[in-house]
Design a protein around this nucleic acid. Structure first.
Lengths: 235, 235
DNA sequence: CCTACCGATCGGTAGG
DNA sequence: CCTACCGATCGGTAGG
């Protein structure tokens, strides 16, 4: 079953389905199938999914190659080593996480609600925390978002040097939480020491990767509500 | 360096240090070195440490054998397979976690503090939660407690059948939290829905395995205080 | 619990 | 990006 599916997939990827080709009459190289950067990115996407599902060590480079219709040696045309693929997956994950986070905080900035006079000024950090949490859940649990979970759970497989590369990105990501948590601590919404609170909160969110099932149970909005209710005091 | 250290260790484990033997005049087989159950348990302890440090897939059965001074095939005299070792590590971890948890809750039960009239009756679940959290940190972060962290982070390497075996133990462990959280929810100390609160709280604690460093930073008591302050409302 | 060994798999490479 | 291949390592076993 697997062997047959793979060979069909491989042939399709290499030659294209002849019937479809003739029907559409498209030349072989104009589609993004043959685009170099695109093939590389297909490898990364497949690697992220497999690393997440089976773990880095349990995933062979042959698995990854087969998932995109390549032969066993071909991934090494795009990546120097298996380690380099892992690092690339994690870097892409962190870049998208940071981007999503910045977008979420930017949307929260305009003080239109406060200007309407409905809520106290101190509530703005509350809104910001909600956006941070919601964006984090999106990054971890959103459809096809395998990159950051790989980073969280395959950290051990990195070399010392690779860890340093990622440390800066992780530092940037976590730095965004600190001023929000400090404001909430000052206003009494948050009681625990800010540094430990950040570690515990991120842990609570990160662990959701282990138990969240999109098909049943809570939505990401419900998760966000629960986290806010759990972490924040009322005044 | 490793090769030399290993060969010395192996010889010592197999024959005993001759000088020491003569000095103490003890016969070779009376010490627990030759006890069958003890050798098995030494393997388990070494496996737990290595699985935690390097991961299950990255640890070879040869690594484990060498760590206790055995040769490559010998672990299979004690365990049917590498998988069986992993399951045994996890089962031992869960048994000790459940035992420590029960002890902690038992110590909290006598109502002597409430009987002294100093605190409201509703505070007893607060004490129980503190004991649950503190016991959990002990289980995860206490010296030599590698068994449960392995369970948390190598769950993926288990077969379906092995997961079922562990599911009962995990269920027992988590069940102890529910009545405590329900009482806290009823008294207003906990705002989030109990089921999600339990998942988020356990996640926050479990994640500490990733960042806690016993040599620097907070103590387990400080961690417990921070968690209590983070999760609980004041009334 | 050791000795000696096997089949399978893996990351990676040369050469095209 | 494929073909053909290599050295290394691994889990596990037979036979003592």
């Amino acid at each position: 079953m697997t062997a047959h599916a793979l060979s069909v997939q491989r042939l399709t990827a290499r030659l294209g389905d002849p019937a479809l080709k003739r029907a559409r009459g498209r030349p072989r190289k104009t589609e993004d199938e043959r685009d170099d950067g695109n093939r590389r990115h297909q490898l990364l996407t497949a690697a992220a999914r497999l690393f997440r599902e089976k773990g880095f060590d349990a995933t062979s480079t042959r698995d990854i190659a087969a998932a995109v219709g390549m032969h066993s040696g071909s991934p090494f045309y795009h990546f120097k080593s298996k380690d380099a693929m892992l690092l690339a997956v994690m870097e892409e994950g962190m870049r998208s996480a940071i981007s999503r986070q910045a977008q979420a905080l930017q949307d929260a900035e305009p003080g239109s609600i406060a200007a309407a006079g409905a809520a106290p000024a101190a509530s703005e950090p509350v809104v910001q925390l909600r956006r941070l949490i919601r964006a984090h859940f999106d990054t971890l649990l959103g459809p096809g978002n395998d990159f950051v979970p790989v980073m969280l759970y395959e950290h051990r497989s990195l070399s010392e040097h690779q860890r340093l590369v990622l440390a800066k990105l992780q530092g940037d990501y976590e730095a965004a939480w600190t001023p929000v948590l400090e404001a909430l601590h000052a206003s009494g919404h948050l009681q625990a020491p800010v540094k430990l609170a950040r570690l515990l909160i991120l842990g609570a969110l990160n662990w959701s990767v282990q138990w969240f099932d999109e098909t049943k149970g809570a939505s990401l909005d419900e998760l966000t509500d629960a986290a806010m209710a759990l972490f924040l005091k009322e005044s």
